[in-house]
Write a protein that binds this DNA or RNA. Sequence first.
DNA 1: GTAGGGTTAG
Length: 592
Amino acid sequence: MNYSPVLTAKSRHLFAKLLDYTQGKNLPKGKSLHAHLLKTGVFPSCPFMSNTLVNFYAKCHLFSEAHLAFVQISYKDTVSWNCLINAYSQLSLRCYSLSALELFKQMLQHHTLPNSHTFAGILSSAAMLEDSMIAQQAHSFVLKLVDSYDVFVYSSLLNVYCKLGDLISGQKVFDEMAEKNSVTWATMISGYASQRLTKEAFSVFRMMTAGGGEGVNEFVLTSLLSALVSSEFVDTGKQVHSLAVKTGLLSIVSVGNAVLTMYAKCDSLDDAVQAFELAIAKNSITWSAMITGYAQGGIAPNELTIASVLKACSSLSALEQGKQVHAHVVKNGFSLEVPIGSSLSTMYAKCGSLDDGNLIFTRMPARDVASWNAMISGLSQNGLGIKALELFEEMQLEGARPDYVTFVNILSACSHMGLVDRGWEYFKLMSDKFGEAPRIEHHACMVDILGRAGKLYEATEFIESATIEHGLCLWRILLSACRNHRNYELGAYAGEKLMELGSQESSAYVLLSSIYTALGRLHDVERVRRIMNLRGISKEPGCSWIELKSQVHVFVVGDQLHPQIQDVRSGLWRLSKLMKDEECSSILEELV
DNA sequence: GTAGGGTTAG
């Protein structure tokens, strides 16, 4: 069946909607439009509607859906292939770059002619893989198939040569380009910067700004700043810094980070610290840069700075960097008093290095409540709940006064170990002995304790008698517990409460509708879905990643793409079987 | 009518 290339007014309207959903990553609406297009036969026979659908799933990061839609398209044209190839190459992960190249091979085998859009993606995959063979092959393809000097393709080509360290070829491509834009300039500058060719990087920048400062953006500035790598450039660095202020670009986090790093590399640690303290936006890179700056600078920061850097290490679980700071503490002869001792033990405990944390903790001349809390929570989170409770007793013997955080920690320890009575005991002790009114966190812990232990009606009664605001999260915890214990009636009750209270969490709605499905109440399933749509709540695809040998592996729900996905699945199956005996398989069942 | 390129740390 061939589809007429001319769209009716109605189809044109639907097409505009699909584009709209793609931009807004509106998964539920896009999916229901997909179903409609399938019913009317527009998908998979209408080429550009189908291509847009592939792109829609790719933009929503549902790659298996995108792949499936792509496979189903009746007549795959160049754009169909490009949608999928570029979706993979944009992920900037080695395994997906390989998938992009594999698709390109298949595209050629299907006698589909690639065009400039194809090469933009293929070249960025080649850059990701730092594969010079692929780069050269793609280059000769470009010379044959892309007639004009397409600025996208040539920027990618320039980029791949820069990544390979071949600045001769890079400069040649750069010179040949008829049209240059900010991306081109930034790429050329960063190419020279990465080879520590500071003079060349700056001469490119001067060429760029010769006709006024147009086109200077955050990419250009960060690239330029990265070229300033030693103290001889500190004055130049200050000029670039002031340019960043003048243009207002300093408020962008990447620019702020680059300024900080520049000062640290130019041995101007005071300026780096000032840049850090004045930074409007900070992220993990900011902290990382500051820590490295201290580590390389050899200048001893004061106690409070060390403490705040250690705190950053804790929240980022940055054990290696935390150790670097510890080395500084030792080298510069700081004592283990508060705040340094406290933040050090906290850092080790939060990073899961309990023995080191405990060592610091016991050596401290005096401990503040934060160090007690950190050790207690470290023990509890690493499966040593009994030890956590013992430490709580020890804390009281030493005369330290527990605060509300302490109680959150010991209640969650009780929850992990299934200690219902102890939980109640501590919950009451909190107000009776220490005059601390239980907060929402403590209520949440209690619901969790009761829920895990299967005391679902007691938990319900607890929630309904609680005189505390934000009861929403309590019902949410109960709902999960009901699902785990397969008490669907009570689960439906909790779910209805959540909807009534106007929960915005997609997972609550999904759970509730799955409970109604299990109960066979299909019109209720429909009702929940309707309310969810009405309130504009969409289900974000679950995504997780781990780092192995400096390579990040990403997994999305329904993933078919990871090269070892079969091994991962069979591994999960094995684990699930093992866990069946332990009666906790419900968590894994959803994964497999 | 649908698809594309670049930066900062370690």
